[in-house]
């Protein structure tokens, strides 16, 4: 169980770093340092994704969040003045701290009380093979059947959690096709919208 042990240790260390980094982001007076702390949190979250076998999501997290969003924020910080101690508290600081910690405990309580479905309760062996092990795909009268593979051979696929990229891709264009299109429209309208906002100022 050496693998699990290392994964657990990494998880606890990284979670600690995430919470520490998040606190730094919301308390730092220097906005630029806050932005850098934010990108640190993003990287740590990507590590959590890697630990959860979500390689694709982890890589996208680094690509989009660290490579684009936090660089954009750092870029924006350069344009505003009073960066070094520009991040001030409002007068509701204590109230919001109380509210947020209350919400935090409520969330923990709910998550502990709720009985979540567990992976252990799956009894279908083919499903387990499809999720984490090796499996065959057999197409049979319109639906695809998953069979557990006993011997390793070329036609064997890895489980959806081990090789998630393929499955994410296929579900994006089958189950989630319409949300995908909507996301595309949102991205384009955001692009055009932000350009329009900037250009309107330029004319004046």
């Amino acid at each position: 169980m050496s693998g699990n042990f290392f994964i657990d240790i990494t998880f606890w260390v990284v979670s600690f770093l995430i919470i520490l980094g998040s606190f730094y982001v919301v308390t730092a007076r220097n906005i630029f340092r806050g932005a850098i702390g934010l990108s640190f949190v993003f990287i740590c979250v990507a590590i959590i994704f890697f630990l959860l076998n979500a390689e694709f999501l982890g890589v996208v997290q680094i690509l989009v969040y660290v490579g684009a969003v936090s660089v954009l924020i750092a870029f924006a910080v350069m344009f505003i003045k009073d960066v070094v101690d520009g991040s001030k508290y409002s007068k509701y600081r204590l109230l919001s701290a109380f509210l947020c910690s209350f919400l935090f405990f409520v969330l923990i309580f709910i998550s502990q009380v709720t009985e979540w479905n567990s992976m252990d309760s799956i009894e279908n062996e083919d499903a387990l093979a499809g999720l984490e092990g090796f499996y065959f795909e057999e197409s049979e009268s319109g639906s695809i059947l998953i069979k557990k593979a006993e011997v390793l051979s070329d036609g064997v696929n890895k489980g959806v959690f081990i090789n998630s990229t393929l499955s994410i891709g296929s579900s994006l264009i089958s189950n989630f096709l319409i949300p995908l299109q909507v996301i595309g429209f949102i991205l384009i309208s955001a692009l055009i919208g932000s350009l329009t906002i900037i250009r309107q100022r330029r004319k004046q």
């Binding site: 850098i36 990108s39 890589v59 996208v60 680094i62 690509l63 660290v66 490579g67 684009a68 936090s70 660089v71 750092a74």
Partner: peptide
């Protein structure tokens, strides 16, 4: 993804 870090 990793090369985009150098921009940061």
């Amino acid at each position: 993804a990793v090369t985009s870090l150098s921009g940061l």
